[in-house]
Design a protein around this nucleic acid. Structure first.
Lengths: 357, 357
DNA sequence: CTGAAAGCGCTTACAG
DNA sequence: CTGAAAGCGCTTACAG
């Protein structure tokens, strides 16, 4: 080799503008065809070991990285992963994105974000168009789009790998990351039972979210198993918003024989419960215990700091990306420990012993 | 034409798997060369009007959309816009993303998100690698990466268009969206002055954020113009975090002759101030007025609801994307009204009249 | 105003 | 195990 001068790597930073190295440059230097370089890039087993090593060394020295666009054109598939979501909570969105990026790091894939509105008529065709146009490598569907029955058939039709994140297994285990929200509901119930509560209420999330149903189901079942009935009149449905939390709490707390504990379907609604309690001059947790769900930042900012269920959203994202990337390789299959992503109770100051009588 | 059967549009949804239409399909149907179709796609003026109309009609009927990957390969530039950020606040990130997507809608561009850590040694080379590898169409830099002096020269070198979002004009106006945080600081000062406060303190953001400096500068200047000095001892520096807000507030409020009003550099720190005040049994706003900055969701969830400055982050994002996309077209130049993106005071319950003596 | 050729940087399908 | 040819779907540079 005639010194670094002949090498066109993108790592050189000496002012001079130079084009990035291509597969042809590598092939020339290695004295092989570009097809052989391609085999090394794509880890084909049909390359002699010493050839592979020689080429790998040259690739490393040049800092050659294959052009994802050219590769994508030839593969008829891009190296972009789409995150498709319609979740209204910023914290969830950011945690999930972070997790996906964690799982994609070093893989050469990039993350394209795609918020959408599941209630519009154009929703399905719009998502399909997006995927086909960008020839996405795959998509991660987060709640509530992940729960839409109409999407998987379309994704199969256009041969787009996907991972669905949802509170229960709605699909083949290999394409699911299950967040087990019913377990979280059960843990919330156990916590309140342990504190001696009997008159317990629940503010559920909107029925359009599967998580709302699962959190309620786990909560009610655990209460029932311990001889405490969650009366219908003590269950009201909110929209996962702060304002709906206030309204639902006012309804529950305005009655005679009001509940001594409320499990809200998420932190935002729990914050609304605290606000309503304050307006009604109820002390939390003396007069009323409150438990939320999510453990977003808000949980520790409000007063009193909120007892809640921590969902490891970022870890879930990392696992989802990992599964998606492996789904098209030989290493397919489920590799994560489902227990690692169970919701966990975080006890703060919004829950306490049931008032005596 | 022999009916819809001969047309390979991606809008057909009749089960049958068919490849997407290409420029060749359009050319064949229109009886022109693909080069002419290409001219129509790229809005070249060198096409006869009736030819253009005929081709446009066929494109519309087929639902033909050019493959961004192939186009990108030929153009040596992708149709991806990168958002590069290191802001710790989820709400900011999501609002900004939403705004960028608003500005990109219908343009054919997609948004690739790229969080990073400005403090690592590999930061610059990593960002450069990302842009070069993906041949990004352009990038939007949000604070605090937008404030890094080292980045623009690199972006120029690799000919990557960019927009910087920052509190002051750090660059050519055409590549900036300026958020005027000093104006927000001044408005906060005026509000507290109007309420009769004299002993006023400030919890600044970290000096690594330009916004921290600008908010403080505007605040101090407005106080000074009205004969109130912001004493050095009444200015402490936090990190924009909740915890730092608590610590700084404890330092300020623990002293004799404590301030009657605190302007915190953001809502998170303001929430910390409220938490500290509560622990010290100070009533807000009776004993202490608190003003924040950002008007994120948290501002209306905590107690008392926070008086704060609303920054129209989503609008700013939309404008940034719009500027970026236009920067490479004939329609370049600044098109937005700078007044439209000024921070605005939102008065809630955390600020009130200064205590009498 | 329009087109035939060559090329963007890779991979597939086919030989050897 | 390795390579020459053709192709992915577009655009640039050059003719006419």
């Amino acid at each position: 080799m005639i010194g670094r001068k002949g090498i066109r790597g993108q790592t050189t930073t000496d002012g001079e503008r130079r084009r990035r190295a291509t597969i042809n440059d590598v092939a020339r230097l290695a004295n092989v065809s570009k097809k052989t370089v391609s085999r090394v890039i794509n880890q084909s087993p049909f390359v002699r070991e010493d050839t592979r090593e020689r080429i790998s060394a040259i690739i490393a020295e040049m800092g050659f990285v294959p052009d994802p666009q050219a590769r994508g054109l030839a593969f008829r598939r891009s190296f972009l992963i789409g995150m498709i979501y319609d979740n209204p909570t910023p914290q969830y969105v950011v945690n999930m994105q972070q997790g996906l990026l964690d799982g994609m790091r070093g893989s050469g894939f990039e993350l394209v974000v795609h918020p959408c509105d599941r209630t519009t008529p154009a929703f399905l065709s719009e998502v399909r168009e997006f995927i086909e146009r960008q020839k996405l490598f795959g998509v991660v569907l987060s709640p509530s789009v992940s729960e839409d029955k109409r999407l998987p058939p379309i994704l199969h039709e256009i041969a787009c790998p996907y991972i669905r994140i949802a509170s229960i297994a709605l699909d083949d285990p290999e394409v699911m990351v299950v967040t087990n929200d019913s377990v979280g509901g059960a843990v919330a119930a156990r916590h309140l039972l342990d504190l001696g509560h009997k008159r317990i209420a629940h503010i559920a999330g909107p029925s359009t979210f599967r998580s709302a149903h699962e959190r309620k189901r786990g909560f009610a079942a655990e209460l029932k198993d311990n001889g405490v009935k969650l009366a219908d009149r003590n269950v009201v449905e909110g929209s996962y918003s702060f304002e709906s939390g206030i309204a639902c709490a006012e309804a529950l707390l305005g009655r005679a024989n009001r509940p001594t504990a409320i499990f809200a379907g998420n932190d935002e609604m729990a914050a609304g419960v605290l606000m309503a309690a304050r307006k009604m001059s109820l002390q939390v947790p003396r007069d009323l215990s409150v438990v939320g769900y999510d453990d977003f930042q808000i949980a520790s900012r409000i007063w009193p700091p909120l007892t809640t269920l921590h969902a490891p959203t970022r870890d879930i994202g990392r696992i989802a990306a990992d599964q998606l990337i492996r789904s098209t390789s030989d290493a397919r299959g489920i590799r994560y420990d489902p227990n690692a992503i169970l919701p966990k109770l975080v006890v703060r100051e919004s829950s306490g012993p049931a008032p005596k009588k």
